[in-house]
Design a protein around this nucleic acid. Structure first.
Length: 442
RNA sequence: GGAGAGGUGACCGAGUGGUCGAAGGUGCAUGACUGGAAAUCAUGUGUACCCGUAAGGGUACCGCGGGUUCGAAUCCCGCCCACUCCGCCA
């Protein structure tokens, strides 16, 4: 969420910055500014009357103790009107404040000044590449063909159970999924200094509002409900399945004032992620790329504002290290202003090479949110004892999306005979070095 | 599912319808004491918003929302949340 006061004091500046994202985003500011200005005026008026009432009540307190009942009664009658007016203004003000908040919640973050301009995905800037692009003396197969032939991926039985966009993993495939999770967590926890967290997978709407998924992206979420007696509110107790560990982990510190000396805080969490992928009909229908349920290890950092930029580089390097240890070919691209996620002010995507398609696909998104999430979730820190609380900066990145990592391994490490040579880093977790057709699925 | 007791400041914890932003304590900060520290003593320590260049002034906030009242942390109603015991359950 943007700072309402900044919108008022620097409307043109904020509008211009948001305009780099989209014209629509820039336009969304107008209603905010109008409502915020109206609110400011009403606050002044309301507070003046409240002060008047408070002073009158002080006098009433004295009158109540004096023997002059007539004076007390008369004054009391006179004050009824004042109280009524205060109440009316307070009601109006509350409505206006809710309106400002509601409008502001829908405004995306301002792109950082260092973010390249652009109109869409095609304007993202490739920053660097990593690993070697594997060479094949045969036509590399798609991961779903590799996986089905190995007997480790089963889309048909998953569809029987749950419909499209779900997968059953068998045998060494299931073990590989688990191995990847352990490998990634171990790397971040033992070598990168992250604290491992295991959060709830179901969260309240407030948590999703804190990180920015709500109110705008409800359609992308799976929402649960509890059994309620007829007539009871069906919304009562409703919870959402987490679309990413970012939500529960970032909101761990919602409504808290952190000790400045404790920053930066760094958390790594494995969770499954659930996304309804509304609006993605027909895209990536085959294979593991786009699923309703997938595993991800997420890394999250809470930092002081002055370190935000450097922290994004650090976090990105931590995510990148996973690809490097696995020996996978990838590239890092910086998203242009138009392609940025709504809450982010600067993002690097890690994209892994998929030889069957000859393209790079997103496998991690590392974002610096500035104080956008911190303001929504009220995550602050005290720089020094006694100092005024300030909003932290939050960052997070996939480290990595496990399903897509498995895809990349099946594709980049495949051999002509249909087997897959596993990265050395996974051997201790797997107990085997290769996935062989006819043996892997059992 | 049954029964019960609660939600107050960074934290713990008192609170009679008016002088309560709220006792007391912890923690923290500054000063005194000390060779230094501990202990002790003194003083100071909430958040947000509005006006103001500033100094400063004002308003709101005792889970949330409504009601009663000239006036609500305190009374009434609804909701939300978390806790205890029993039962059930991995």
């Amino acid at each position: 969420m943007l700072d309402a006061r900044q919108v008022l004091t620097d409307l043109e500046g904020v509008r211009a910055a948001l305009g780099r994202r989209s014209a629509e985003a820039a336009r969304s500011l107008d209603a905010v500014a109008e409502a915020a200005e109206a609110r400011r005026r009403l606050v002044g008026e309301t507070e003046r009357l409240q002060a008047e009432r408070n002073q009158a009540n002080q006098e009433m307190s004295a009158l109540a103790r004096s023997p002059d009942r007539a004076a007390f009664e008369a004054r009391r009658e006179a004050l009824k009107g004042l109280s009524e007016r205060v109440k009316v203004l307070e009601t109006e003000l509350a409505e206006l404040e809710a309106r400002v908040e509601g409008l502001l919640l829908a405004v995306p973050n301002v792109p950082h000044e260092s973010v390249p301009a652009g109109h869409g995905e095609e304007d993202n800037v490739v920053v660097r590449t990593g690993g070697e692009r594997p060479a094949f003396d045969f036509e590399p197969a798609a991961h779903f063909d590799v996986g089905v032939r190995l007997g480790i991926l089963d889309f048909e039985r998953a569809a029987k159970l749950s419909g499209a966009r779900f997968t059953v993993l068998w045998g060494l495939g299931a073990r590989l999924e688990r191995a990847l999770v352990s490998f990634m967590l171990d790397l971040h926890v033992r070598e990168h200094g992250y604290t491992e967290v295991y959060p709830p997978f179901l969260v309240r709407a407030e948590a999703l509002r804190g990180t920015g998924q709500l109110p705008k992206f409800e359609a992308d979420l799976f929402k649960t409900h509890r059994h309620v007696e007829p007539g009871a509110d069906p919304e009562s107790g409703a919870l959402y399945l987490v679309p990413t560990a970012e939500v529960p982990v970032t909101n761990l510190h919602a409504d808290e004032i952190l000790d400045g000396a404790a920053l930066p805080l760094a958390y790594a969490a494995y969770t499954p992620c659930f996304r309804s992928e509304a609006g993605a009909h027909g895209r990536d229908v085959r294979g593991l790329i786009r699923q309703h349920q997938f595993d991800k290890v997420e890394i999250v950092r809470f930092v002081s504002p002055e370190h935000g930029a450097a922290e994004l580089e650090r976090l990105t390097a931590h995510a990148e290290a996973v690809l490097q240890r696995l020996g996978l070919h990838y590239r890092v691209s910086e998203l242009c202003a138009a392609d940025l996620g709504g809450s982010s002010q600067k993002t690097y995507d890690l994209e892994v090479w998929l030889p069957s398609q000859g393209v790079y696909r997103e496998i991690s998104s590392c974002s610096w949110f500035g104080d956008y999430q911190a303001r929504r979730a009220a995550i602050r820190y005290r720089p020094e004892p006694k100092a005024k609380p300030r909003l932290v900066h939050t960052l997070n990145g996939s480290g990595l999306a496990v399903g897509r990592t498995l895809v990349a391994i099946l594709e980049q490490c495949q051999r002509a005979d249909g087997s897959v040579e596993l990265p050395a880093a996974l051997h201790p977790y797997m107990g085997v070095e290769r996935l062989v057709p006819g043996a892997a699925g059992r």
